[in-house]
Design a protein around this nucleic acid. Structure first.
Lengths: 189, 189
DNA sequence: CCTAATGATGACAGTCGCTGACATCAGAAT
DNA sequence: ATTCTGATGTCAGCGACTGTCATCATTAGG
């Protein structure tokens, strides 16, 4: 038997979610989250780089799903098609079982500006990662950045729809629709 | 004659730019910036909501240039064309005289992750504002958000090119080129 | 000309986010 | 049995940021 309960990080994440939900992000201290798990504030900051990070861990793994999907695409495919394949790969990570949790999580983020700022930063980081992967495939700039950013835009809009009340379609299907809409929009200009 | 030197906020911004440039963002304290202008730390935080804000003030005015340009567009124009008009309006704000200052400023931001995060947040805020203006014009969702976000993507890429070394073309011309590239990309998918 | 309202600032205490340094101690490795 | 490892506790401390009250030159009003 271990000296400490395992999964401290996961328990801290869950405690943070509950506390942020019940009393808000600003009015929840890191020490409070830690105490809820029976550890000290110092331990909290050993698991997470800052207070916002507690809701965004696992993103690295999340990014890898996108990149792995992109790597399966044969070299000749156009950048946007490659990005859309990456998106569908990432979308598969958000299966129907995950939808309720994603809804709650997004509720917390939407209610707290500092968390929105972090989320946008993470999404931008995904775009940077995808752009780098495209450049590694030989896509020149600015096409690589444009395709990657456009892809994350599509993903973000589709995700917002996916967690909307009453929505039941899978994320990848929504993303396809959103891309069609965007293609129509740019085609008009 | 005024009791205090006027333009305290502007002097704080300039002092902050110099200190961030010479010794970095993290290793510059708010008290230090304030002292460089002969005021107290408390006064610094009366002018700026937080330390990062000192480099991002004036954005509200900056956003209005975009929206004002959008408002000049006649109602029947397609969303993307309307957004591109807004972009050209915003681009006119960055005239050639402003380019050296923008280059320095971007250098500081690129060197400091916390500032990058704030910049992305501000750019996202511009997208939200534009999307709202589009909805006010009768553009439905998700077209409004897509057009607005795509527009800011184009603007961001064009801006990055505009401040690149040796670049001399005006921002609006670059933005037009970037949009053409993006249209070509989406047309392939 | 006197007086009161204004408004940017100083002074100060305090909370909280976050870090560095060192000690602790159960279990794994040797 | 001893050493090593690694997650944790403890503690001191800095810096970001806020609430509160006092100050005082300027300005508006009488």
């Amino acid at each position: 038997m271990a000296r400490w309960e395992p999964g401290t990080a996961a328990r801290l994440q869950q405690a943070a979610m509950e506390l942020f939900t019940s009393q808000g992000f600003e009015r929840t201290t890191a020490a409070e989250i830690a105490a809820a798990c029976g550890v000290t504030e110092r331990t909290f900051f050993r698991h997470f780089t800052d207070k916002r990070d507690v809701l965004f861990r696992g993103q690295d793994e999340f990014e890898r799903v996108f990149v792995d999907a992109l790597d399966t695409v044969s070299p000749g495919v156009t950048p946007m098609k490659a990005v859309m394949t990456a998106l569908r790969g990432g979308a598969s990570w958000f299966d129907d079982e995950r939808r309720p949790h994603s809804r709650m999580r997004q509720g917390v983020i939407d209610a707290n500006p500092p968390l929105q700022e972090r989320e946008r930063h993470k999404l931008a980081g995904l775009a940077d990662t995808l752009a780098g992967a495209l450049r590694a495939r030989g896509v020149p700039e600015p096409a690589a950045t444009l395709a990657a950013q456009t892809g994350t835009t599509v993903f973000g809009v589709a995700f917002g729809q996916w967690i909307a009340d009453g929505e039941t379609r899978p994320l990848d299907a929504i993303a396809d629709d959103v891309l069609r809409e965007l293609t129509a929009l740019t085609g008009e200009a």
